[in-house]
Nucleic acid binder design. Sequence first.
DNA 1: ATCGTAGCCTGGTAGC
DNA 2: TGCTACCAGGCTACGA
Length: 275
Amino acid sequence: MPELPEVEVVRRGLESHLGGRRILDVRVKHPRPIRSFAPGAAAFSEMLRGRRVDALRRRGKYLWWVLDSDALVAHLGMSGQFRFHDPREPEHRHTRVVFELDDGREARFLDQRMFGGFEFVPGGAQLPVAHIAPDPFDDDFDEREVAARLLSRHTAVKRALLDQRLVSGIGNIYADEALWRAQVYYGQPGTGLGVRKALALLRSAREVMSEALEAGGTSFDSLYVNVNGESGYFARDLSAYGREGLPCYRCGAAIRREPFMNRSSFYCPRCQRRR
DNA sequence: ATCGTAGCCTGGTAGC
DNA sequence: TGCTACCAGGCTACGA
């Protein structure tokens, strides 16, 4: 369940372990994570061999390795991880792609569910994911403009929050947390939100993700870890997500869980009401 | 243009 | 014990 804070934790880890390193070789152990690279595994390795990682950038939940003017885009999906190892260490069974580095170590991409993967974008170093909207931490993020677009959506406000073309980086967990903080019901249509609430919601999203980043990210199990294999601590600070039946920290009412968009929505029935 | 859903994936767990 | 069904959910494709 990596969302913006978790991806940023990973980006920072990659920056310190991978920045400035040269790729000696690439071993593709499963075709699924490079499904969007049509030429296939051998060409993928050939493309990357000998190249240096100049920088690590991120927008929303996407991160990319800057290789001169090109970009190697990575998405963690549900369960993607990067781990650094000595080549003599045994490979975990979910290891999908291995990058051999010029410092004698390996960057291993693990992904149990394989929703994640790589995409090579020639000339894409600046912004290889142009279809993804700026996230709330991006210099290009225009709070007023996003709020206005949110207010024009007839659909449930949570659906809009999860739409990466409107604002990126927010997933199911932080959507519920932002809605709880701003006291907005997830099923509330965007059109009825009001400009003050819309702005409050976006600020709540930024706030909660900022706090989660401070804590090293959210994790319930070993599926999400940083590049050292460690979990973040934000799970214990969640106010809504995963708290079905437990008392709301604000008003004491029991947190409710409802199915929404093939997943769950957690909210307080008393202090998050439809306007 | 906007909105909503199916499908991709694996492994843990609940239920029989 | 061994089987099936379900759940987790980010994203794309596609139909209405």
